[in-house]
Computed example of a mutant assay.
Amino acid sequence: MNPIYKKVPVLIHNGKPVCDSFVALEYIDELYENFGRKIWSTKGEVQEGAKKGLIDSLKLLEQAALGDKLYFGGESFGFADIALIGIYSWFYALEIFGNFSIEAECPKLDAWDKRCKLRESVSKSLPDPHKIYELLLELKKTYELE
């Protein structure tokens, strides 16, 4: 489906290809709301809507892109996994603020995360999820989002 290089990955949206992993991620970020920010910075209906949006997006990613494969590219760890694993460090904080479990909602995605973290190159390079949680607590306090 990639009209230029005939390579993967390529994101097809409304029949048009978005090529290159990072361009596709930027495109998705601009196209959809930032659910993560709304989960930690709001409460009530807005937070619930953001939580539902995030979970629905992760379920779609889990079903459409990961499926029954070990990694997003198939049987071996690759570029798509590298691009996505970094955001998983934020999920600990989002789960606490939003009172939900990604492991319960998206077990295949959670298993993928654990599989990736068995790689020393991944486990040593990711930020500490507890520090991200502490950072978001400070931001909530600083901007009076309590």
Rank of each mutant, 00 (worst) to 15 (best):
109 L>N: 08
60 L>E: 04
1 M>A: 14
111 A>N: 12
49 G>V: 07
82 I>A: 05
132 I>W: 06
2 N>P: 10
37 R>G: 05
4 I>W: 15
96 I>H: 06
144 E>Y: 11
63 Q>T: 13
67 G>H: 03
92 Y>W: 09
18 V>Y: 13
75 E>C: 11
100 F>E: 07
22 F>W: 15
30 E>N: 14
40 W>T: 00
81 D>S: 05
25 L>I: 15
65 A>Q: 13
68 D>F: 01
39 I>A: 02
137 L>T: 08
57 S>C: 10
44 G>N: 11
20 D>E: 13
117 K>L: 05
138 E>G: 12
97 F>E: 00
52 K>V: 06
55 I>C: 01
34 N>I: 02
55 I>N: 00
84 L>F: 01
81 D>W: 14
77 F>C: 00
108 K>P: 01
28 I>L: 14
109 L>Y: 06
83 A>V: 10
111 A>W: 14
125 S>M: 14
31 L>Y: 06
93 A>I: 13
145 L>E: 01
73 G>H: 06
4 I>Y: 15
50 A>K: 00
102 I>A: 02
110 D>E: 10
14 N>P: 08
76 S>N: 12
4 I>A: 12
3 P>G: 07
22 F>Y: 14
103 E>I: 06
64 A>F: 12
42 T>S: 12
50 A>I: 02
31 L>H: 07
140 K>V: 09
88 Y>F: 11
123 S>H: 10
55 I>A: 00
135 L>V: 07
43 K>W: 13
65 A>L: 13
108 K>E: 04
77 F>N: 00
129 P>W: 01
56 D>Y: 03
40 W>K: 02
54 L>K: 11
146 E>K: 08
95 E>C: 08
142 T>W: 08
87 I>E: 09
122 V>A: 09
75 E>V: 12
60 L>K: 11
135 L>Y: 13
16 K>V: 06
112 W>R: 06
15 G>I: 05
16 K>A: 08
89 S>R: 12
76 S>K: 15
38 K>G: 01
37 R>Q: 11
103 E>N: 08
91 F>R: 09
100 F>N: 07
145 L>C: 00
44 G>M: 14
40 W>M: 02
95 E>M: 09
108 K>L: 12
77 F>M: 00
52 K>L: 12
57 S>A: 14
